[in-house]
Amino acid sequence: MLVRQYHGDLFRYGYWLTHDKQVTEDLVQETFLRAWRAIDQLADINAAKAWLITILRRENARRFERKQLSLVDIDDCSIEDENANIESAIDNDMLNQAITMLSEQYREPLLLQVLMGFSGDEIAKQLGLNKNTVMTRLFRAKKQLAQMLTSDQPAKAER
């Protein structure tokens, strides 16, 4: 039931966090695996969605921890043009581009509200912020999006 009900939303949420299908698949798979192993921690079935998002966010954070700790050969690194990457990945879709250009601190509350249907209080709890901060971030995120969409070319979003 958890898989059937939440897999789609979790996958989309993961994708918009990572912008990478393969990473999202790994993330979602790891999330359900951890959820399965710790299913006895889920005291209330109505809280399943928030619980799964918490696991997914924690897994995503771990990904960065691992990334920082691993050492790579400098010769294996290519210099990437961030803007070119964004443009090729999103097929010049203005809205997708605008979303991608939002900083994570603005994009994540937006995902939780619009995609996951969470209230301000629920987002605050999920992100460990107070509700006013969440509301301010949502306000700025939406203002920035509107601004980027009305200009000819999305400007670099405020960080």
Binding site: Y15, N96, I99, L111, V114, L115
Partner: peptide
């Protein structure tokens, strides 16, 4: 936005 978020690739 919701429609844009829905345009994630298929697993």
């Amino acid at each position: 936005l919701l429609e844009a978020f829905g345009r994630a690739p298929e697993p």
